[in-house]
Design a protein around this nucleic acid. Structure first.
Lengths: 208, 208
DNA sequence: TGTACATCAGTGAACGCGCGTTCACTGATGTAC
DNA sequence: TGTACATCAGTGAACGCGCGTTCACTGATGTAC
């Protein structure tokens, strides 16, 4: 039953794609190798022809999820003026779990805390994804002429990751939507504050 | 080896306290009943004299963690003026994982996403904890005379939960601290924006 | 180009292990009289 | 108050199950000549 090289490569990609979907939807611990292989239309024995361990698949699936998400965000945003682009990114990010068939889930908001005690390689992928998200948003805030554009971008990322995480704890959709709406207001407020104070202000903070 | 009623009640509390510490530090899936009972100085067989299932312990341990956290925050903040109180709450929350011996970890930031597919009872405890955190912060923002004080409180909660969650992905302490510092800046910016735009009757001194 | 052999993707079953849970047992505590 | 019995907290071992991983096997693909 040996497959050709291109078929093998496609199978591998298919497993990673299936895994990234299941891991993000159900969590790492709750998703088994057999689940993934069955969902991919294969039997579990074949798994180790492609991967050394579940941990390796977690790493690749996370990376794939980030690539998919940023691919979508990049292409959606390209050519748009920065304010509209920023608005679109935040909307798409906050609504990631509300879609009928969510395919652009972010590992940070969906399995972030589960990656905490993973291999360094896996954590490095999560950190890289975080930095990509910050850069994508900072690219917009920079074009808006905001002085501390990276700092604002990091603040926005905390707010939207926190919002999506918290919204998933809600027992009903209305509560989830309310939490997301509020995270959106937080982003708007942060942006307004930065646009007003942006060019001149030296950042102040209240004492520790 | 039967124990007296007071001893039994103390044993039960001790198991819950131990479990809440281990669950928050290591995650739900990574913490077994045997681990918890051993850490509590007992054998695993005795577990089911006190609890019906691991899920029930997760519920009680989460509730206990919230109670501990809010007990500490309430007593620290009582009597302080709202600005200082808010500042203290945010600082303590953001530094929860940086302590040498972290005992005030918040379930939202540490096991939040793992509670996603738990029983309704468990999720209800998480939602309740979220609302308590919002109320605690809203009590301060209200005293600051901010119009949408609850909305601001929810925005702050998203930012600090997101910040703590993300900081735990960092590979080194410096990155973690940077993420937390930025979440703190986000809170400051949100507060400044609200004080400028949303102060109703109560006038705050400018204090620049 | 055709042929013979080596390779290896995928199958299906099994392995070992750790988990949550159960259970017979012990003996101190609680209770009834 | 003292005594006899029932209760049950805690022990230590076992159970069943699902998990990640391994393995012998199959047969199509790749390769050497």
């Amino acid at each position: 039953m040996r497959k050709s090289r291109t078929e093998t490569a496609e199978t591998r990609k298919h497993i990673v794609a299936t895994a990234s979907r299941l891991f993000l939807a159900r969590g790492l611990a709750a998703t088994g190798i057999a689940d993934i292989m069955a969902a991919a239309g294969l039997t579990q024995g074949g798994f180790y022809r492609h991967f050394e361990s579940k941990e390796q698949l977690i790493a690749e699936a996370s990376a794939a999820a980030f690539d998919r998400l940023f691919g979508m965000l990049d292409s959606t945003v390209t050519g748009k003026p920065p304010e509209e682009a920023l608005n679109t990114i935040v909307t798409l990010y906050l609504n990631q779990c509300q879609e009928a068939n969510p395919i652009y889930l972010c590992p940070l908001a969906n399995i972030g805390i589960e990656l905490r005690h993973s291999d360094k390689e896996v954590k490095a992928i999560a950190v890289d994804g975080y930095e990509r998200l910050v850069r994508l948003i900072a690219a917009q805030t920079r074009q808006l002429g905001i002085k501390d554009h990276t700092r604002l971008a990091e603040a926005i990322v905390s707010a939207i990751v926190g919002g999506v995480t918290l919204s998933q704890l809600a027992l009903d959709r209305a509560t989830a939507t309310a939490i997301l709406t509020n995270a959106r207001h937080a982003v708007d407020a942060l942006l307004r504050a930065a646009l007003q104070g942006g060019a001149s202000s030296t950042r102040r903070r209240s004492g520790k």
